[in-house]
């Protein structure tokens, strides 16, 4: 019997400070035992428990794509005890990683469809995983048009800045990056994510929208997609709740009968409609 509470030993291989405020960093982990990497086979949309012995654990979405071999990445905002300890770590430090946990973005359902990715602020991490998965090599052929709408409060708060530039160079991706308010050097789009969605107006034909962001963004973005004719089955999102075990036992992350850790975190709006509105 595999003990699901014991983390895999990992080493902090690389730390990338993502934002000007320095409170969001991407941590790249390598497995101490190379054979653990295969055991940690994951799908975009899943999460892991970052385990710092002596501090505790924190459930964080996986930001890398399974097509990126040799490591796994998490983009983490400094917020509580565990994430603060993580932010103080140096490259080379040993810690633990549990998972992969939860369901995932529904790749089979997405295949052959036009994909609209909408992300706001710091909630872009597992969407980045999905984008990198879909555009990797031959994977790209399995999906139709890919439209990305990604916004942050200001240019300094955009994640994965180098990747955004690379993505914009590709002809098989429609990338729309926006900021609420630009600065002196910003030449891109200004405006809130819902407004940009309205402006880009992706077609509902054979399309699925995958939306992740702060509650206020979600609240104003959903009506835009309803107006565009997207059905609730074709709008997918990911939930967050306080978690401990990550495997549906400790009893705190349920929304109705479903555990966000085990049955989620990914749900379609149609599925969420069937659950109690307690999240």
């Amino acid at each position: 019997m595999q003990n699901p509470y014991i983390p895999y030993p990992v080493v902090v291989d690389k730390i990338i400070t993502e934002v000007d405020t320095k409170d969001i960093k991407t941590f790249r982990f390598k497995f101490v035992n190379p054979e653990d990497e295969a055991k940690y086979a994951y799908i975009p949309g899943q999460f892991g428990e970052l385990s710092i012995y002596g501090k505790g654990e924190s459930p964080i979405g996986i930001a890398s794509s399974p097509t990126q071999k040799g490591y796994v990445e998490f983009t983490v905002q400094k917020a509580g005890v565990v994430t603060q300890a993580l932010h103080e770590m140096e490259e080379g430090t040993l810690m633990g990683l549990r998972g992969p946990l939860g369901n995932s973005w529904p790749l089979e359902f997405l295949e052959g469809k036009n994909i609209v990715i909408v992300g706001g602020g710091f909630a872009f991490t597992t969407l980045r995983s999905l984008i990198n998965y879909m555009i990797f090599g031959d994977n790209r052929k399995r999906f139709g048009n890919i439209t990305v709408i990604y916004g942050a409060r200001n240019p300094g708060l955009l994640l994965y800045k180098d990747e955004l530039i690379e993505w914009q160079k590709r002809s098989d991706l429609n990338i729309n990056v926006t900021v609420d308010k630009g600065d002196a050097t910003w030449t891109g789009r200004e405006g809130f994510v819902p407004a940009v969605c309205k402006d880009v107006a992706p077609s509902k034909e054979n399309a699925v929208a995958v939306i992740c962001g702060p509650p206020v963004m979600i609240r104003f973005t959903l009506p835009v997609f309803f107006d565009l004719g997207f059905s609730k089955e074709n709008i997918i999102t990911s939930l967050e709740m306080r978690m401990k075990c990550g495997i549906g036992k400790c009893g705190r992350c349920n929304v109705g009968s479903k555990y966000v850790c085990k049955d989620g975190p990914v749900f379609s709006l149609a599925e969420l409609d069937k659950l109690t509105p307690e999240y």
Binding site: N3, I6, Y53, G54, G92, T93, L94, M95, G96
Partner: peptide
């Protein structure tokens, strides 16, 4: 030296 590590189940 490299941080807290797992020692026993």
């Amino acid at each position: 030296e490299k941080g807290m590590v797992f020692s026993s189940d």
